[in-house]
């Protein structure tokens, strides 16, 4: 029997008095799936991703993540749930003045609280070793002590990926992880990201404006248009023309 990692029912969201971002979304994501969420600007992709992680509350509807209903959880239970998730944003979102190693060690903060996980100098040996292993996986172990604001865009995104993967999350959300990178760096980072998450068996929901990325890396396509799901199909069944219509 397939385990469902994310189940969304009747999700609605609007900001202020503006038109609803989305209305009555229903979808589910199975464990180990890699789902590409696509749609034109302003269709609510980033908002939907944040709703899935409980960073934004939907106006209506239910989200069940890893078997738990987000709205029913108290702060502590929500933190425990999030400790099994991760977010890779398009802006990398590293702490600029801290070292690469400290930024990766921050990935443990969901499971371990306290000053020992604030900077790498104070971190336990096992956490430093695990963070170095994560950095080796993204090919940046030799830059562990460099300040995050001295990295290139591609390197920053690799560090963000290492931070997201260091505590072995089960569910990962990536919001246009290549949007701020040049095409070549974007290809490299996307290929690395997908190789790592598929090797680790992580369930992934990612957004991308790159149709080729969505079709080649996503097992399934979720297409948003006009506040509703216009496409929900295996990527092999989605034609480039259907994808183009989403942006039309």
């Amino acid at each position: 029997m397939q385990v469902i990692d994310l189940q969304a029912n009747g999700l609605c969201k609007r900001f202020g008095k503006a038109a609803p971002v989305f209305l009555g979304l229903d979808f589910s994501i199975r464990q180990g799936d890699c789902v590409a969420l696509v749609g034109a600007n302003g269709t609510g992709k980033s908002t939907l991703l944040r709703c899935c992680l409980g960073l934004i509350a939907p106006d209506a509807g239910r989200i069940s993540l890893l078997g738990m209903t987000m709205a029913d959880l108290g702060p502590a239970a929500r933190r425990d749930l999030r400790a099994r998730t991760g977010l890779v944003g398009q802006k990398h979102n590293l702490v600029p003045r801290l070292s690469v190693l400290s930024n990766v060690i921050h990935g443990f903060l969901g499971r371990h609280s306290g000053p020992r996980y604030w900077v790498h100098s104070l971190a336990p040996a096992w956490a430093r070793a695990a963070a170095m292993t994560a950095l080796e996986k993204v090919g940046l172990a030799d830059l562990a002590l460099r300040r995050a604001d001295q990295l290139s865009g591609g390197q920053s995104q690799r560090v963000a990926i290492a931070r997201a993967l260091v505590c072995n999350p089960r569910f990962l959300v990536a919001d246009e992880p290549c949007a701020s990178l040049d095409p070549q760096a974007g290809e490299e980072v996307m290929a690395l990201f997908m190789t790592l998450v598929k090797r680790e068996g992580v369930t992934v929901l990612f957004t991308s404006h790159n149709v080729q990325h969505a079709l080649s890396y996503g097992d399934r396509i979720l297409g948003l248009q006009g506040g509703r799901i216009a496409i929900d199909a295996p990527s092999a069944d989605v034609t480039p023309l259907e994808m183009a219509k989403l942006y039309g």
Partner: peptide, 10 residues
């Protein structure tokens, strides 16, 4: 950065 850490349950 704060949002990224919030998403990990920090």
């Amino acid at each position: 950065p704060a949002e990224a850490l919030t998403a990990t349950g920090a």
